[in-house]
Design a protein around this nucleic acid. Structure first.
Lengths: 245, 245
DNA sequence: ACCTGAACACCGTTCAAGT
DNA sequence: ACCTGAACACCGTTCAAGT
């Protein structure tokens, strides 16, 4: 098993600089820059995060940032980890309750920082915060008799579910303007009604006619989220029961 | 119920131009442009898709594209729908078999066109192709006694699952280079081993030690996908059984 | 070894002039 | 009403010169 060198971004996320420094110490640390970038993203969205705006926020020249990050892309990667909250604390009300909390909290922070969704870094977690989320999920399943592989798969599945639901809710909550490329909920049902023909889309047409898309609030609120989550948790429960038998 | 005007992009995806034309007919249609853009994305990835490269591919000047799409963003939206294959044909082997096929096919086309993942348009479907996928999923559940709302939620959940799995598999299949911001599978286990401390990440450390991340092939292959999918399908099955009882 | 001004490269989009 | 050359705006990144 070879020891790979840590990729630079990963090293930075964990506060391990690739090269020890001699001479003058840098006037800033990466954390300050990342915090500034997060503040901008919260305020102006991801489009507001430019190397120039981040530099201005910390009071440096734009190019000085390249002392701390190799590229804007790397800065975004570090932000994506640093912007996560801590996962819910483990409790002893059982795995099902904990994982439900965990998944909901996961969705909630994505909704509170939608630019994390736009970042689209659904890559395997490598930063301290995201790995803590992973750790807590598999910890909650420690007494179920499931193996590590299964527990990791479950964590990945639940986290994917949280992402999907957050993306959906966020997309539907936006209002569409004419220049925009996505459709908000207000128009959605109406758009489908105008566009669908019953021959090509028989069931969907019926669903629209049956008013299955509800009104604004319903679709986005918790009913759908809980519904799908319970599907998953039921499946996990069945798996555990099978193992115990 | 107000009739909203169709958003321009949606109108274009369905071949309904916003304004009727007088005078000279355009020399191209949107489909030709979109096909060219898809060809480029398949060949060079999403970064290769520039207004200039698309125009060159169809033999026009760059600015002529703005006759056909309002912006690059809109072009990408139309591409995202046009690049989808048709959903699997409905058969009569029951909803579970069909939805398993459907979800797998969904993941597979995402893996064959990874730029669809990078596009990150996990918005509610509004184009002809993506709505056909939705239609087929809820059609498969027609005889289960579930309502339209539940059937739509299930479709959204399964599609979210396919996206999550595809994103994960794709991320792990890439190899990391030094300038890169993500970690490929080859290094992943090793990186975790170097970076995790047992105090902060007790369960994850144990999982790494237990070799739960397997070797290259295993993690990406179908075992994990089927595992999570079965969790979902079991949950759906339980829901149906509950309703029938 | 750090910081930074000037300059470069790239690309989406606007505009006004062609036909 | 379509097509297009020139020009503009914007932004990430490099480089060489400062301290």
């Amino acid at each position: 098993m070879t020891e790979h060198r840590l990729p630079p971004v990963v090293a930075r996320m964990w506060g391990r600089e690739a090269s020890p420094r001699y001479g003058p110490r840098p006037s800033l640390d990466l954390g300050t820059i990342v915090d500034a970038a997060i503040r901008i993203a919260d305020r102006d969205g991801l489009e507001g995060v430019k190397m120039s705006s981040v530099a201005a926020e910390v009071g440096m020249a734009t190019m000085s940032l390249y002392r701390y990050v190799g590229s804007k892309d790397q800065l975004l990667t570090v932000m994506a980890d640093a912007a996560l909250p801590e996962p819910p604390a483990l409790h002893d009300q059982g795995w099902r309750t904990y994982l439900a909390d965990w998944t909901r909290a996961n969705r909630d922070f994505l909704l509170s920082r939608p630019w994390l969704l736009a970042l689209g870094q659904h890559t395997p977690p490598a930063g301290p915060r995201s790995l803590r989320w992973a750790d807590r999920a598999i910890a909650a399943l420690a007494d179920t008799g499931l193996g590590y592989g299964e527990r990791l798969s479950i964590a990945a599945t639940l986290s994917g579910y949280a992402i999907g639901q957050a993306a959906l809710a966020h997309a539907l909550n936006r209002t569409t303007d004419a220049t925009d490329s996505t459709v908000g909920l207000a128009e959605y049902r109406d758009v489908l009604g105008q566009v669908l023909d019953p021959d090509g889309y028989p069931e969907l047409t019926a669903a629209v006619r049956a008013n299955a898309f509800g009104v604004s609030e319903e679709w986005v609120d918790d009913a759908d989220f809980t519904f799908g989550l319970d599907l998953l948790l039921d499946g996990i429960q069945a798996l555990i029961a099978r193992g115990k038998r």
